[in-house]
């Protein structure tokens, strides 16, 4: 990755963080932690890898992006707005009465959202179904799925994972946001999901580990995943929950937290 592209993707990640933080502040609170931890990935997907058409959101040959950890929706909305699906200012309607942007992703409300998610692990199964359908239709697109490490405590993740490997779904590239935290504490203390990489290898996936806050590292992982022709790929992204929201970065409490005007200003200043 050249310096210019790195700067561009880093800038987009920063914009995603800023816009989603503004959307949280507009309603006063939200799922900050998990939105911040996938912002760099969303930048690399939406501003480099994803073959999508904002002017034709339901283009049948598009890449699908399924945010199975649906509570990180506000980061996805920011990425969609910045990519031109809808005006950036619409992000400030997050969770307001009648909004098209609810806490958890809703494919029937938000232009550009490929699958509803919120009840954890269900999006991951749907991504597997989409990958099967795309292969059946002989499309050469990719289905990208984003899951969380806490979400990986759901049995359905492993049901879907086992089947995707059995079906040799090389058109499925998944990301595990490995921030090590969940609502009630760290994943290590609540119900340890480690060693995640070994688990996915045991489930016969192509496994790639990367730094989830380094756009070049994420990009390299996706490029490598696209070389794989036999297996689905799980990219395990080491991340920090709340990354970039200085008032809650690296804390369990960042999962769902108040965002006052003061905290927003503090975070925006640090991101500037």
């Amino acid at each position: 990755m050249d310096k210019q592209e790195r700067q561009y993707l880093e800038e987009k990640a920063k914009e995603i963080r800023k816009l989603s933080l503004r959307s949280f502040a507009a309603i006063g609170k939200g799922h900050v932690g998990g939105a911040m931890s996938i912002s760099d990935l969303l930048s690399v997907l939406y501003f480099k890898h994803a073959n999508i058409r904002p002017e034709e959101p339901r283009w049948p040959d598009r890449d699908r992006i399924v945010l199975s950890k649906g509570h990180a929706g506000p980061a996805l909305y920011a990425a969609l707005a910045l990519r031109g699906y809808f005006p950036e200012e619409e992000c400030l309607t997050l969770n307001q009465p009648g909004t098209n942007l609810p806490s958890h992703c809703d494919m029937n409300k938000t232009i550009g959202v490929d699958m509803t998610a919120g009840s954890l692990a269900q999006g991951f199964s749907a991504a597997v179904g989409m990958a099967l359908a795309c292969r059946l239709d002989k499309r050469d697109n990719y289905v990208y799925a984003i899951i969380g490490d806490g979400e990986s405590q759901e049995g359905q993740i492993w049901e879907a994972g086992m089947y995707a490997a059995n079906q040799k779904l090389a058109n499925l590239i998944a990301f595990c946001d490995n921030n090590g935290m969940q609502i009630d504490g760290t994943t290590a203390e609540i119900n340890c999901v480690e060693p995640i990489a070994d688990k996915w290898r045991a489930f016969r996936w192509n496994v790639i580990e990367c730094d989830g806050h380094d756009v070049e590292s994420i990009d390299a992982a996706i490029v490598a995943a696209k070389q794989e022709k036999e297996r689905p790929t799980m990219i395990i992204m080491k991340t920090i929950k709340g990354k970039g929201a200085v008032f809650c970065e690296g804390t369990v409490a960042s999962h769902s937290t108040n965002v006052t005007k003061e905290l927003l200003d503090q975070a925006l200043a640090a991101l500037a």
């Binding site: 699958m115 749907a126 597997v128 990958a131 059946l136």
Partner: peptide
């Protein structure tokens, strides 16, 4: 055969996979 998806003993995943197939234009 190519339009049959036996997911094994995993009903939750079967429904989720069906939803994904439907979201991508199939009638499962």
């Amino acid at each position: 055969p190519e339009r049959t998806f036996d997911v094994g003993v995993a009903e939750a995943n079967m429904i989720g996979v069906a939803a994904g197939l439907a979201a991508a234009g199939k009638i499962p």
